[in-house]
Amino acid sequence: MDYLLHVLVLFFLYAILTTSLDLLVGHSGLLSIAHAGLYGIGAYAAAIVSTHFDISFLGSVAIAMLAGVLVSFCISLPSRGLKGDYFAVLTFALQMVLFHLLNGWDRLTGGPLGISGIPAPAVFGAELDTLAETTLLFASCAGVVFALSRNVATSPFGRVLHALREDEGLTQSLGKHTYRVTIQVCAMSGAFAALAGALYSHYITYVDPTGFTVVESILILAMVILGGPGTILGPIIGAISLVSLAEALRFIGIPASEAASLRQIVYGLALIAIVFLRPRGLARA
C-alpha cells in the first residue's frame, strides 16, 4: 500500500510540474527547457530555509514559491521578442546555469552533497507522519494548481495567452501587452514549479543537484507534449503515463541494465511520434 501511495505522491508532484509547464508550452506557445531548474530552485529554497533558519513548512513553501517567481523573471524579462525555438535555447542555457549554481555554490547549497535532514511536512504544527496524510496534502496542492490553471486557461487572460501562441505580432497589434503577459505567465508557472520543488524536498528530506538536470526538464516536457499540450487534462495524462510507464517497465522482464536506456529510447520515439501527429504546433485550440 505504501508503495502505491508513493507512486501517487510522485504522480501528484509531476502533475503540478506538467500543469505549470503546460501554461507556458501549451497555452502560451513558449517552449521551456528550464522547468527542472525552477523545480530545483523551489526545492533548494525550501531546503535551505527550513534547515538553516528553522522556518516552518508553510513558510518554506511560500518562500520557495517566491524564489520561483524571482527566477522566472530571469527567463521572461530579458527575452522580449524571442521567438519559439530561440526562446527554447535561452531556457536551455539558463537551465544549465541553474544546475551549475546548485552544484557549484557549496556554501549555499552543499554542492553535490546536497542538503539532508529537511523536516517532514507539518501543517500548523501538526507533523504529517503517515504516507497517507502526505499523499492527501500533495493531492490537495495538485488540485489547487490544477484548478487555478484551468481558471487561467479559460479566463480572458488565457485567451490572450492563446492569441500569443498563435501569432504574437497580431496580438500586439490588437493592443495586448504581450511582454507583460509573458512575464506574468512565466511567474505563475515558476511559482508552481517551485511549489512542487518545496513539496519534494520535504517529502524525500534530502535534495541533491542530480534531480534537477536538463534531462529532467526534457522528461517533464515530454510528459506535457505526450499528454497533449494546451488541453485541460493533457498534462495529467502525460504525468500518469510516464510515471506508471517508468514503474511498469521495471516489472517487465527486461534486464535491469538495459531498462533505463530502453525507457529513454521510448521517450525519444514518443516525442518524435507526437510531432508527427501534431506537426503544426504544440497546441490545438
Binding site: L31, D85, L221, I225, L269, I274, V275, P279, R280
Partner: peptide, 11 residues
C-alpha cells in the same frame, strides 16, 4: 513548425 522540428530532433 520550427518547435516541432526542434522537438523531433531532440527526440
Amino acid at each position: 513548425s520550427r518547435e516541432g522540428m526542434f522537438l523531433a530532433a531532440l527526440g
